[in-house]
């Protein structure tokens, strides 16, 4: 069946709930109303109010109670309505969910998933458009996973729900309904510790994740018309980061451009660039370039196309590394 990314999320949730009655959903407006982006559409009707819980607007309680459930035998999947709302629950996530296992020498664990739409491009301001992957990746004990297609959303979410550690599953807003592809509802998961090579190429490696695959693909198309072959890597799993795939690609291309929509300074691209400098320097034939959001709060809609990495800015970066002597 051909589905959108958000429909694939719903399919994966339904599948996980059918397979395992420890899986519960909770979040604001997710039950009767099916969620602000309809990601839980129909699940309340199908699984009932014991398994699909409407919560108050209480991010700390949504994440905190998920920790308690997870540590005591359930598999909660919580929705935080927009990623910028996660700030109100960060203490629970960073201070407790990510540390429970270490603090208790493995006696308690936290098999929970926080699903949250992230990123801009839908004319929603500030907190409705934030991308917080680098804050989360900086904290131990939390996996950060970002799908960029319906089939990867389906497979990665199923694996995230089965994972024994807390996972923040960041759903790219602009890709929710951007395109459809056939997804086989077979319950099959995808690995949580590997990048996906979306396009093979010889001349430059474009590393990205989430919403930015759109502009990165457009840039690669443009380069192809000019006879330049770009490889596209979708990192997908920010934490844990699969550097081997990136090293392998850069060994062949010698050039790398990293694209993300979060602010550039201390963005996750900096980590990848640092690792390339550390362990992949001799493969590089040009400095690594990063294209990201600006170091400002996410702007209102008239400026957001300026803030987000445009195809033009990505191409400029690509030309800079390709022309480097």
């Amino acid at each position: 069946m051909s589905v959108t990314l958000v429909q694939a999320v719903t399919m994966a949730l339904a599948r996980a709930m059918e397979q395992d009655d420890r899986v519960l959903l909770l979040g604001q407006d997710i039950g009767v109303n099916g969620g602000v982006f309809r990601a839980t559409d129909g699940l309340f009707k199908k699984f009932g109010d014991r398994r699909v819980l409407d919560t108050p607007i209480s991010e700390s309680a949504i994440i905190g109670s998920s920790i308690g459930m997870a540590a005591q035998g359930l598999r909660p999947v919580a929705e935080i309505q927009f990623m910028g709302f996660l700030y109100a629950g960060l203490d629970q996530l960073l201070s407790h969910a990510g540390r429970l296992r270490s603090r208790t020498r493995g006696r308690l664990s936290c098999p929970m998933v926080i699903r949250t739409p992230f990123g801009g491009g839908i004319r929603a301001p500030e907190h409705h458009a934030d991308s917080l992957e680098s804050i989360l990746a900086h904290s131990p004990g939390i996996r950060v996973v970002i799908p960029s297609s319906p089939s990867r959303a389906y497979g990665l979410l199923l694996s995230a729900i089965q994972d024994p550690d807390p996972v923040v599953f960041m759903e790219p807003i602009r890709l929710y309904r951007g395109s459809k592809e056939p997804v086989n509802d077979d319950g099959g998961g995808l690995p949580l510790d590997t990048c996906f090579v979306l396009r093979e190429g010889r001349d430059v490696t474009l590393v990205t994740w989430g919403n930015c695959v759109i502009e990165v693909s457009e840039a690669a198309d443009q380069l192809e018309e000019e006879g330049i072959s770009a490889e596209i890597i979708d990192v997908a799993s920010i934490s844990r980061l699969d550097m081997d795939t990136i090293f392998g690609s850069v060994e062949r291309t010698g050039r790398c451009v990293i694209v993300h929509e979060a602010a550039l300074t201390a963005g996750f691209g900096a980590e990848i660039a640092a690792r390339l400098a550390d362990e992949g320097l001799l493969s590089l034939r040009a400095p690594v370039k990063r294209v990201g959001g600006f170091d400002t709060a996410y702007p209102l809609y008239r400026l957001e196309n300026h803030y987000l990495p445009t195809t033009h800015r990505i191409l400029e970066a690509c030309r800079a590394v390709l022309d480097f002597e």
Binding site: G64, S65, S66, G68, M69, A71, Q72, Q92, H96
Partner: peptide
């Protein structure tokens, strides 16, 4: 205060 929501979650599990 951090453990109060967590305790609520444990209670929900029970």
């Amino acid at each position: 205060g951090a453990h109060l929501p967590i305790a609520a979650g444990a209670a929900l599990s029970a």
